[in-house]
C-alpha cells in the first residue's frame, strides 16, 4: 500500500451556489479522493453523487436563481465510514418531497436523486444549524482496496 495515501480525511470547501461551480465541486472532490486508497470506479461514482447533490441545491433549494450565497461541502472519512455533508442557506427542503422519478418512466429530469441513492448507503436531510438552513448528509461504508 502506498504510505502517502490516507484513510482518514476531513476537508471542506465553500462554493458559490451556481451551476458554474459544479466543475469546481468535482475538482475539489477528485482532489480529496486522490488522497484516499479507493477503487477509481468508486471514486468516480462518489464524485457524481457529490456533484448531483450540489446540483440539487442550485436547482431546488435556490430554484436556479442567481445568488451570492455559498454552499459548503465537507468530506470526511474515518474508520471506513465516509460522510459527505452539504450545507446551504436556500429554501428549506421538505424531506417528504425529495424523491426520484420512477426509473421506467423515461423522461428528462429526476435522475440526480436516483443516482445519489444508488451510489450512497444513506441520504439524510436535517435542519441546518445557524447560519445554515439545510444540512444534507450522504454516508457510505467504504471497504478499502
Amino acid at each position: 500500500m502506498n504510505s502517502s495515501v490516507e484513510n482518514h480525511i476531513s476537508e471542506k470547501k465553500d462554493f458559490v451556489v451556481s451551476s458554474s461551480s459544479l466543475k469546481d465541486v468535482r475538482t475539489f472532490s477528485r482532489e480529496v479522493f486522490s488522497k484516499v486508497n479507493l477503487n477509481q470506479d468508486l471514486k468516480d461514482e462518489l464524485v457524481l453523487a457529490i456533484a448531483e447533490a450540489a446540483q440539487n441545491i442550485v436547482k431546488h433549494a435556490y430554484q436556479n436563481q442567481e445568488t451570492d450565497d455559498k454552499m459548503e461541502i465537507k468530506i470526511s472519512l474515518d474508520n471506513g465510514e465516509l460522510e459527505i455533508g452539504f450545507f446551504d442557506k436556500g429554501r428549506p427542503v421538505d424531506n417528504s418531497n425529495v424523491r426520484h422519478r420512477k426509473i421506467d418512466d423515461v423522461k428528462p429530469g429526476g435522475l440526480g436523486t436516483f443516482f445519489i441513492k444508488q451510489i450512497m448507503d444513506a441520504v439524510v436531510f436535517k435542519e441546518g444549524e445557524k447560519p445554515w438552513i439545510n444540512h444534507l448528509i450522504l454516508t457510505k461504508k467504504i471497504n478499502h482496496r
Partner: peptide
C-alpha cells in the same frame, strides 16, 4: 451527470 443524461433522453 443526470443533466447530460436528460439531454440524451430529450
Amino acid at each position: 451527470d443526470s443533466s447530460g443524461i436528460s439531454v440524451l433522453i430529450e
